Amino acid sequence: TIDDAFRAIERAIQAENEGRYREALKHFLDGGEMIVTAAEKEASQKVRNLLLHKGKEVLEWAEHLAEWILE
């Protein structure tokens, strides 16, 4: 659900702030994927587009974090 997705993102932010970057990455990926999944089930085109945009933002952040971890 969207609530689960945002809880995962909150955990990711907390982990990132505490320097637990790999854990943060996992939570960002989980949250982003949950948002995209919820968007695919959404009946309203406007809400679907907003959710897809937010999911994409979260997944892009996860990608940047992963690249930073690997440096």
Rank of each mutant, 00 (worst) to 15 (best):
D4L: 10
I69H: 06
L52V: 05
I2Q: 03
K46N: 07
N49R: 07
E23L: 02
S44R: 05
E33K: 13
L25S: 00
T37N: 11
A43P: 13
E23N: 03
E57F: 11
E42T: 09
E42W: 11
D3F: 14
E63S: 11
E23M: 03
A12Q: 01
H27R: 03
R7P: 02
A62G: 02
N17T: 09
A43K: 14
A15R: 02
I69W: 05
A15Y: 11
D30Q: 13
E10V: 09
E42K: 04
A12T: 00
A38H: 07
I35N: 02
V36T: 08
H53Q: 11
F6S: 03
D3E: 13
A66P: 00
V58Y: 06
L70Y: 09
E42L: 10
G31F: 14
R7K: 13
I9K: 00
K56C: 14
E71R: 07
T37S: 11
E57Q: 13
G31Y: 08
G19N: 04
L29K: 09
K26Y: 05
R11D: 06
H27T: 02
I2C: 10
Q14Y: 05
K56A: 10
E16Y: 15
D30Y: 15
V47K: 06
T37G: 06
A43E: 09
K54C: 15
E40H: 13
W61V: 03
L52C: 14
H53E: 14
E10K: 11
F6A: 02
W61Q: 02
I35R: 00
G19W: 03
N17C: 14
E33T: 13
L59D: 02
L59M: 06
A39N: 03
E23K: 03
E10I: 10
K46F: 13
E63G: 09
L25N: 00
G32W: 14
K41M: 08
H64C: 13
R20Y: 06
I9M: 02
L51E: 00
Q45P: 14
N49Y: 06
A43L: 13
A24P: 03
S44G: 08
R20S: 04
I13T: 02
R11G: 08
T37C: 11
Y21T: 01
G19C: 09
L70V: 10
A12H: 02
E40S: 13
E60M: 15
L51P: 00
G31C: 09
V36E: 07
D30V: 12
G32N: 09
E57K: 14
E67G: 08
H27F: 13
R11P: 00
I13D: 01
K26H: 06
D4H: 09
A66C: 15
L25W: 10
S44Y: 04
L25F: 04
A38L: 15
L25G: 00
Y21E: 00
K41H: 09
K54L: 15
H53I: 15
R48Y: 09
K46E: 14
H64T: 09
R11E: 08
E33C: 14
E23A: 06
A15Q: 02
G32K: 05
E71V: 09
